[in-house]
Amino acid sequence: MITAQITGWASSLMGISLGADMAWVWEKVLQATWETLYMVAIATGLSYVFGLPLGVILVTTEEGHILESKGLNRVLGTFINAVRSIPFIIFLILVIPFTRLVVGTSIGTVASMVPLTLAAIPFVARMVETSLKEIDWGLIEAALSMGASAWQVIIKVLLPEARASIVLGVAITTINLVGYSAMAGIVGGGGLGTLAYYYGYQRYEDLIMWVTVIVLIAFVQCVQMAGDKWAGKITNQRR
């Protein structure tokens, strides 16, 4: 119902008379939205599976930290910076051979998840790093003074203490990936990106273009709100 309202509002805004093609637009948009959601959700999940441990390693291998290892820290840091400095649209093309190797094709939603995940991993690692660095060293010192191992410090101090901040990071990552997924859409990745590109850009179908934009705005708002709410709940529980 809400979406019907949005489309209604959008079309009256643009002075377009709606007829039978409205149903067709809906079908297209709905399917594309679903594809985007699916793609972004899986890519976010997978990027945390790899990015979270990397973030933990980035922090703990720093000089003076619980798993100090200057070499590893430097190598990892440099690698992450290198990946992050490649614009996503180029990265997307660069990893096509790898995508083919993993998925068998470079076209479609499933194929898009590969570059999305790969690009998000270093981003997630840096987000997690920032979150973990907010933790007062005194807490780590206290745990060490009780005889905690490095693993116990990570599991019982670092991650729980940074939970609210990590949750906000998930929201930011998801929103970033929505943007990335649109780029993937241009090279046949499916989802709202493909829809907007094929119909909106190549066929001048303004309606589809606008509906896509509105859906994206709504989606990003929802993700950010959910993230804020969840993080707020974690923080409030402690007050």
Binding site: G138, A142, S145, M146, G147, S149, K156, V157, R238
Partner: peptide
């Protein structure tokens, strides 16, 4: 050393309690 530390308690100026 970790075992020895369990038998040496420590308290801090900033308390260092886990907020979580």
């Amino acid at each position: 050393l970790r075992q020895a530390r369990q038998k040496i308690g420590m308290i801090f100026q900033q308390f260092n309690l886990l907020s979580s």
